[in-house]
Structures are given as structure tokens and as C-alpha cells.
């Protein structure tokens, strides 16, 4: 394998290690939220440092790659994509940490009626599924799959948009559980951000494979409408 490909593989492997760690953080956040497991939440917060270390390491690897290989064309797009995916993974890692911090506030697991009303669990599962599918799109160099991931973000947005009204109604009816509802609302907001960040990653996969910039396309469409 040419030297440049060896280095690109190293970069990809490091990014996928980070991807796995962030996925684990997100999954753990779901569990901590549902079980109010204080210990688990603490571990997630602690492990975010590891995510940050990956972020710094990958940035440095990309910097070195630019300096030593002056990449062009598909190689250039690959390293640019890795840089941006790295930044988004780091932020998803922060989100998982944030969810864990909210979970630390729960004295008991979130009540099932509130979970059901807000659709927090299907939303969380959808975010996790998008995250995992985006990883597959990256590994298998599959821009079609990346496009499918982007489409799935609508589901998250839909649930998020309804959540304010649903939570307000719930708080009016259950004034003793306001803090629980507010915490869950914050988590829902964070999940909506995860959807956006996974979308950003999917856009980078498309850019890397097809040399097409698809980000902000929705904004343009909206303006036209």
C-alpha cells in the first residue's frame, strides 16, 4: 500500500475509534437517563475527557498530514471531512456528557407517562440509529446511505417541535414534577442537536465521496419557497 494510503488508513482508524467511543457514550446516556443510574452518569462525564483527547489527537494527525503530504482531490476532501467529522463527534460527545449531567439530577428514573408523552425514547433511538448508520456510510464510502441519514433527521425535528407544548401541558397538570419535565425537555433539545450534528457528518461523507457540497441546501430551498 502506498505510504499516503497507510497514513489515511491510520487517520480513518483513529476516527472510527472515536466514533465507537462517542456511540458508547450516547448509549450509556440513554441508560443513565432511563435508570437514573448515578454511577453510570458519573462515568460518562469522566469518559468525556477521553473523547476530547481523541479530538486533539485527530486534529494533530490531520495537521501533520496536510504538512507532510499536501493532499489534493479525493485525499484532500478525505482529510477535510475527517477534520469536520472529528469536530462534530466531539460535540456529540459533549452532548452525551450533558445528558449524563441531567441524568445525575434525576433522583428516580423518568416516569414512563412523561417519556411516552414526549416520545423521548423513540427520539433517542432514532438519534442512535442515525449515528450508527452514518458510521456505516463513512466506512463503506456510501453517499446514498449518507443522504438517507440526512432525511431521517426530520423525525427528530418533528418530535422536538412538539415537545415544548407537550411538556408545558404536563407541567401544568403535574406542578410537582416540573424539574423532571424541564430536565427531560433539555435532553430532547440535546437530541435534536445530535440529529443536526449527525446530519453534518453525513454531509461530509457526501462531500468526500462526490465532491458535492450539500450543506445549507435546505436553507436555500426554504428561501426559494
Amino acid at each position: 500500500m502506498p505510504h499516503i494510503d497507510v497514513e489515511l488508513e491510520r487517520l480513518k482508524t483513529k476516527l472510527l475509534e472515536m466514533w465507537d467511543l462517542v456511540e458508547y457514550q450516547l448509549q450509556s446516556g440513554r441508560e443513565a437517563m432511563l435508570t437514573a443510574d448515578q454511577e453510570l452518569a458519573k462515568q460518562i462525564v469522566k469518559r468525556d475527557k477521553k473523547v476530547n483527547q481523541f479530538d486533539v489527537k485527530i486534529d494533530r494527525m490531520c495537521e501533520n498530514f496536510f504538512a507532510l503530504f499536501t493532499p489534493v482531490a479525493v485525499d484532500l476532501r478525505m482529510v477535510l471531512a475527517v477534520l469536520k467529522i472529528n469536530a462534530n463527534l466531539e460535540r456529540i460527545g459533549d452532548t452525551a456528557e450533558g445528558i449524563a449531567r441531567f441524568a445525575q439530577k434525576f433522583e428516580t428514573p423518568v416516569h414512563s407517562d412523561l417519556l411516552e408523552l414526549t416520545q423521548a425514547i423513540p427520539m433517542y433511538d432514532e438519534a442512535l440509529a442515525m449515528f450508527a448508520e452514518c458510521r456505516v456510510a463513512f466506512i463503506s464510502n456510501d453517499p446514498k446511505l449518507a443522504k438517507a441519514v440526512i432525511k431521517r433527521d426530520k423525525t427528530l425535528n418533528k418530535i422536538y417541535r412538539k415537545s415544548d407544548a407537550v411538556a408545558t401541558k404536563f407541567m401544568q397538570q403535574n406542578p410537582d414534577r416540573i424539574s423532571e419535565a424541564l430536565a427531560l425537555l433539555s435532553i430532547i433539545k440535546k437530541l435534536e442537536r445530535v440529529g443536526d450534528q449527525v446530519t453534518n457528518i453525513a454531509e461530509e461523507v457526501i462531500f468526500y465521496r462526490e465532491a458535492k457540497v450539500v450543506k445549507h441546501k435546505q436553507d436555500k430551498k426554504k428561501k426559494k419557497d
Binding site: 499516503i4 493532499p71 489534493v72 482531490a73 479525493v74 485525499d75 484532500l76 476532501r77 465532491a211
Partner: peptide, 13 residues
């Protein structure tokens, strides 16, 4: 950044 022909891409990379 985005050559159209694979031969170009192979050469410049």
C-alpha cells in the same frame, strides 16, 4: 479538488 477523470485523480494524488 475535484478532477472529473479517474486518470487525473490518480496522477495528481
Amino acid at each position: 479538488t475535484s478532477p472529473k477523470d479517474e486518470r487525473t485523480q490518480n496522477y495528481i494524488t
